[in-house]
């Protein structure tokens, strides 16, 4: 059993004739970094929204940890799967940067010291320390992107879905992100990342799924570690 399983999933937006996704069959394992690539408008973002239950498939089923996704509440999904939206503006809602990073933990009843400690760590790692008290939407695009990623990672979810995480990041910050994602993967957690950044995908992804016109046209399967073991 894979951690996240997508079986025969199709999706059409209400009042549209053309399906965005057709007959998607994909299983994602823990500890594997999968990249979802494809031309603009091929349905990548829609697929990620289905994976975290923000959208419901028209037909087919998605299972998280063996249970159908429809049986989970969004909050339950959010504690298992961390999702970084394509546009950070849509997911930042707190009054300060520090609050943003600590929001998930604080609202799940974590100890104040634990929250503060983790917030400090993530602000430091993503180089946002100086902005702790700043209003999130006042940050630059690159800083907002880092904040969105930090806020999701601070929750320490079991699985990650990242939509275009490198947009607005410079080479140096991309490397920081790359290191961190690899570290997460080594700790046994899996992730799916949507990206047009071919260089980043080449360095980070162990498996590449290509989407075109709402269909999977290529799936490299797991390269690297699994292939070596086989």
């Amino acid at each position: 059993m894979s951690f996240l399983e997508i079986d025969h999933v199709s999706f059409t937006f209400p009042r549209h004739d053309k399906p965005v996704l057709t007959e998607i069959d994909l299983h994602f394992d823990q500890a594997v970094i999968t990249a979802l690539v494809g031309p603009n408008g091929s349905g990548k973002t829609t697929l990620t929204k289905l994976m975290i239950g923000v959208l419901r498939p028209a037909c087919g089923e998605i299972r998280l940890d063996g249970r159908p996704l429809v049986e989970y509440s969004l909050g339950e999904i959010g504690r298992r799967v961390g999702y970084v939206f394509q546009n950070p503006d849509l997911q930042l809602f707190c009054g300060t940067v520090a609050e943003e990073v600590g929001f998930g933990l604080a609202n799940r009843g974590c100890q104040r010291e634990t929250v503060e400690e983790r917030v400090a760590f993530y602000l430091d790692y993503f180089e946002l320390k100086d902005y702790g008290g700043v209003f999130p939407l006042h940050l630059s695009q690159g800083e907002k992107q880092r904040l969105a990623i930090a806020a999701v990672l601070a929750n320490e979810p079991l699985f990650l879905v990242l939509d275009e995480p490198t947009v607005g990041l410079d080479a140096y910050r991309k490397r920081l992100l790359e290191d961190y994602l690899k570290k997460i993967s080594r700790s046994g957690r899996g992730m799916v990342l949507v990206s047009h950044d071919t260089a980043f995908v080449d360095r980070v992804a162990e498996r590449v799924v290509i989407l075109e016109n709402g269909r999977v046209i290529e799936d490299s399967g797991r390269k690297g570690k699994a292939a070596d073991e086989a």
Binding site: G38, P39, N40, Q86, Q141, E164, T166, V167, G168, H196, T198
Partner: peptide, 11 residues
């Protein structure tokens, strides 16, 4: 201001 970042190769 960074119009290329979210574009595919064709774009």
């Amino acid at each position: 201001d960074e119009v290329m970042s979210q574009l595919d190769q064709a774009g």
